[in-house]
Each structure stands twice: as C-alpha cells, then as structure tokens.
Design a protein around this nucleic acid. Structure first.
Lengths: 239, 239
DNA sequence: CCGCAACGACGACTTAAGTCATCGCGCCAG
DNA sequence: CTGGCGCGATGACTTAAGTCGTCGTTGCGG
C-alpha cells in the first residue's frame, strides 16, 4: 500500500483543517507513523499519555474491559479522527484502552506540539472544544441506552445506524453487510454475543429484517425505529 | 438569603478563574440570575441552547429520562460548576435535561458572550478543554459501570465516593449522612429504588456498613473497595 | 489442502434486575 | 395539629440477561 500523505491526513481532522497548509506541514513534520495489526493494542487504560494519534487508515476502538474479559466499546474511530487527545489536556492517564479493529496506520503527534498549537491558535482550541462537545453528546446517548434501554432496543439502533450509514436501498428494503461479528456487536451495544444472535433472530421472526448470511435487509424501517424508541420496564412514575 | 456576588461565583469556575477581575466584572455584567425551586426544570433535552448556566448555590442534575419515567442522572453540578455549556459550542440542542435538586440560584450567560470570550482568550478555551476532558473521563467511567458492573458494585462505588467526599472518620468507621433518597441514588447508579434498599441491606448483613436511619457508617472500607472492583458475570474469554 | 479455531445458533438453565403489592413511619402542607 | 403522601422495606413474583454445553459451518494459517 502506498504511503499516505500525512498532510492530507491531518487536514481531514476537523480541528486541524482550520490550519493553513504551511502549518499543517510543520505539524506533519513532528508526526511519527505507527502501524498496528488487527487486534494489536495501541495503549492500555491507565497508561501515561505521551501524545495523540490520528487515524490514517483502518479503525481503532476505544474500550473499557472488565476483569471477566467482557468489553464495552466507547467509540470506533476511523480515518480522519483522533484517538487519545483528551488525556493530552488534563495530564491524566488514558481513561480507556485502544486497539486496532483491522490493520491500521496512525500518525502520532507528541503532546507538547499539540498543546503548543492549541495555546497559540484559538481557532484550533475552539474546534477541539466543538469536537469534545460532540463526543460528550455521543457518550450521553450511550449512557442513556445502557441504563434505560434493553438489549433489543440497543441492537435495533445499531442496525438502523448501519442501514443509514451504508445501506443500499433496493426493492426488498435497505440492504447492508454486517461486517462485525456478534461478539463485536455485543461489545458495542453492551451485552454478550448469545443475546445478539437471539435478538437478531427475533427481528427476523417478526419480519423486521431478513438475513442472508451476514447481509441484513431491513424490511420494516418504521418498526425498527419503533424498537429503538422502547425503554426498559422501569416505571418510577405511576402508570 | 443574601444576594451572592456574581463575580465571586464566576471566579470559582475553573475556566473563568483565569480572567483578571475587570474581565470577570465585564462578564458578570452580561449575566442574568435564574432562581429555581427544588425539582424545577432548568431546560429539557432537545431545547435549543441559548447560553450556559453557572451554579451559584444549590445543585443541578443533568439527566436522561425514559418514556417510562425512569431517569438516569449524568452528573450533579454544584456551586462553581457550569451547566449546558456543551451545546453552546456545537450549536446543537441540549443533549440532556437539567433540573434543580434543591432550591438553587444560577447565573445565566448568553452564548454569544461566552463564545466571544473563548475566541479571543485562548487561556479560557484551553481551560474549557480541560474541563471537558475531565467530563469525558467521568462519562467513560459511568459507561463502564453501567455496562460492566452489577448494581451492588455501583452502589458500593456511590457509598465510597460519599465516604471519601464527606465522611467523618470515627472510632466506629467512616460516617456520613445519606442525604439522597433511595430513588435519587437509583437514578445516579442506574437502577430502581427497590434494589438500592435491598443492596444496602445486603451490605449491612455482611458487616460492610451499619446504618442508623439515614446515616451510614462504613465498617469495612477494604471490603467496600473490593465490592467496587467486581464485575458482571460476563466472560468473553475462557475462565 | 487440511486441520483447527472462531463463529453462529440454540436449548436448557441460572441469576440479576425489575415489578407489584403491602405495611409502617415520618414529614409537611393545609 | 392532623391527614395524606412520600419514602423505606420486604416478600412474592416475572422477565431480561447471562451462562454453558453442544453442534455445525466457515475461514485462515501452516
């Protein structure tokens, strides 16, 4: 594979894209390249933070791991996104672990350079804040799901997001490949792989989706959305 | 109650405390005052964002609500903290609802002034980033708990945090008042009030804590910490 | 090309979470 | 001062989540 242009990679990051080309170039000159094989660890929760990573190609998952081995994925970042930048700012260790979900190439930017840039360039700082605001919003949704929704609702949202992001509209419905294993889906939505299998089967039985091996065809998007809107059986107000 | 000095309130906010007094004064001149009774709503999830609030006195909870009425509290903010600032930056609606957990007084800062300040003062922007980094870290912990830990582990962490924050070390153990109802605790740790009661009883039965009405005495902090370290019964790796 | 491990599926089972009804107590509003 | 409501506690029950064993399939590394 041809070497990717680090300047073009940096330009894809929202808070670097505000920089003129010369500054991107200067920044790129400080960057190292880090290559990871699939499943290789980038950093582990609690590791001291030395800098941030920019995904050039592939994908990186941020995740928390229980001592039983069960994982909760916080987010998956792909090309043009950053990983590990929060620990740069508050001087703490990494709050979660990161690993490659496929062979990946990342740029590594030492924290000193990044901090310097943010201090002297308020447009960058400002764009960083915007990125963090978005992340918080996303995390708030994840908290809501994990606390207030059942596994079937969370799986429905997962499928809907995939349909929206990469679905192909056909006469049968919206088709998309399910590229993750049930284990990976379980880690994303906060359950175990048996329940992913069981709930997919339930959606098939109800005529909401059809499955052809690992291809999903959404037959009834309205019903899928209705599934998403459901809640756990928890009434703290009178019914 | 005497009127609180808005300049002193603003000074307590980490990302405003970097400002000299004259700038705090100018900022304070743009602030309105908002008073809320206990349980009164500040804003509702989805409301358009007009500005940020600074807590002068009392307490504000940010929370998500299921249609069943069950709540998940994201965070509780007290004097010297801000509420609703994230939506200022990404132009979105409020990602969660906010309400007073007791009679409260807040300063209201229109978003235009706040955005202006961040744009021209990179020390403020920088401090905002730091604050957001901390929030993300906190949210990552909440996600970890909700996904990977059982109710008893989450309650143990709640009690430990209270013991650490406001516990009084006595010969009997660490004593602190449990000021929240079981319902409020349930909303904080992601469960229902019945389970809070039941798990408190379990800790009493195991000699970890003693309860005198709503006062908690931690008899065995080491065991409480051990409770916190536990995980859900989920093994995705062989045992 | 083949063997092995990972994966998907599923049934039977256990456990945790949650519901609901009820009772006693305490506090607050009228 | 009193009545009513909120709260705590608890038992009995239901449901969802999760475990475990097993079988068949698939894909990848040697």
């Amino acid at each position: 594979m041809a070497t990717l242009d680090p300047i073009e990679t940096l330009r894809r990051v929202p808070f670097f894209s505000v920089l003129p080309r010369e500054e991107l170039q200067a920044l790129a000159s400080h960057c190292g390249v880090r290559r990871l094989s699939r499943d290789e660890t980038l950093f582990t929760e609690g590791d001291p933070c030395e800098g941030l990573y920019v995904v050039q190609s592939g994908g990186i998952k941020l995740f928390k791991m229980a001592e039983t081995g069960r994982e909760q994925v916080l987010v998956i970042e792909r090309a043009g996104s950053t990983v590990g930048e929060l620990a740069v700012f508050d001087g703490g260790a990494y709050p979660a672990s990161a690993a490659a979900i496929e062979d990946s190439t990342l740029l590594y930017l030492p924290k000193r350079e990044f901090l310097e840039l943010c201090r002297r360039n308020s447009a960058v700082s400002f764009a960083v804040i915007r990125a963090l605001a978005w992340r918080f919003r996303y995390m708030a949704s994840l908290v809501e799901e994990l606390s207030l929704k059942e596994v079937s609702h969370r799986l429905a949202r997962f499928l809907r997001d995939h349909a929206v992001a990469s679905g192909l509209r056909t006469r049968r419905g919206i088709e998309f490949p399910l590229e993750e294993t049930n284990q990976e889906i379980a880690a994303a939505i906060g359950t175990v792989r048996d329940l992913v299998s069981r709930n997919l089967r339930r959606f098939v039985d109800r005529g909401i989706i059809k499955m052809e091996r690992r291809k999903v065809i959404v037959l009834d998007m309205a019903e899928l959305e209705a599934q998403i809107a459901g809640s756990k059986r928890a009434a703290t107000v009178e019914k």
